[in-house]
Computed example of a mutant assay.
Amino acid sequence: MSARAPLPLVVAITGASGAPYAVRLVRALVAAGRPVWLVVSSHGFRLLDTEVGIASIEALRAECDPKGWDRLVTVFDDKDRGARPASGSARSAGMVICPCSMGTVAAVAAGTSRSLVERAADVALKERRRLVLVTRETPLSQVHLENMLRVTQAGGIVLPAAPGFYHRPTTIDELVDFVVARVLDLFDVEHDVGRRWGG
C-alpha cells in the first residue's frame, strides 16, 4: 500500500513587516515536498515588493524551486471567499499566517471573515486544525495582547517573529531561519532549517 499524500498546508501572507519569513517558509515547504495552498493579501503583495523586491506570484515562484512550485503550490485570490480554503469540507493540514498583521489577528479573534485569509483562519479554528499566527509588531498595545489571547483561547498558536540568539547568528538569514524552523516544527515538517539547541 502506498503512503497517503500529505494534506495541503494553507499559507497566508499579510501586511506585517516580515516578508523574508514568508519567502523562506514557502521555499522550505516546497523543498520538503509539502503541498501548499497560498493566499497573499493585497497588503501582503505590497510587503513582498517593499521588503524583498518580489512584485508578483511569478517572482515568488522564481525564489523557490519552480518545478517543485508547479507541482505543490496552488495560489488562491484573497478576494475569493468561495475558494477551497474557505470550506471545512476541503481537508487541510492547518494554516499558518506569516507574517500576520495585527489587523489580521483582530479579524481572526473576532471571526469577521472579510477575506479568504480571514475565512480560512476561521475554518482552521472551527475544524480544530492547527492555526499558527506569526505576528510581527512592536510595541504591543492592550488591544493587540487581548486579541492574541482570544485567538489562543480559541485554539490558535501565536508565534511572534522573535528569533533567539543562543545560536549566535551572524547573518539575517540565520535569524529568519530560527523563526521559520519553529513554524515547520509545529506542522511536523522534516527540515534542516537552522540549528537546534544541543545543550
Rank of each mutant, 00 (worst) to 15 (best):
R4D: 14
R4Y: 12
L9H: 04
A12N: 01
A12W: 00
I13K: 05
T14L: 04
A16V: 10
S17I: 11
S17K: 12
A19V: 09
P20K: 02
P20V: 08
A22I: 02
L25M: 07
R27W: 11
L29M: 10
V30H: 01
V36T: 14
V39T: 14
S41Q: 06
H43R: 13
G44D: 00
G44R: 03
D49Q: 13
T50P: 00
T50H: 13
E51A: 12
V52G: 01
V52Q: 02
I57W: 09
E58R: 13
E58Y: 05
L60P: 00
R61I: 05
P66G: 06
V75D: 09
V75Q: 11
F76Y: 15
D77S: 13
D78L: 09
K79F: 12
R81W: 04
A83S: 14
R84D: 08
P85E: 10
G88A: 02
A93G: 13
M95I: 09
P99R: 01
C100N: 05
S101G: 12
S101Y: 02
S101K: 07
M102P: 09
T104H: 03
T104L: 07
T104W: 02
V105F: 12
A106Q: 06
A106F: 10
V108F: 01
T112I: 09
T112M: 12
S115H: 07
R119M: 07
A121D: 03
D122L: 03
V123A: 00
L125S: 07
L125I: 10
K126H: 13
E127K: 05
R130L: 02
T135A: 00
R136N: 04
R136H: 04
E137H: 04
L140G: 03
Q142F: 13
V143H: 08
H144D: 14
L145P: 03
E146R: 15
E146N: 14
M148K: 11
M148I: 14
V151F: 09
G156W: 03
A161S: 12
A162M: 14
A162S: 15
A162H: 13
P163D: 03
G164M: 09
Y166F: 13
T170E: 15
T171S: 15
T171K: 14
D173Q: 15
F178C: 09
L186E: 15
V189H: 09
H191S: 11
G194V: 02
G194I: 00
R195N: 12
R196M: 06
R196V: 10
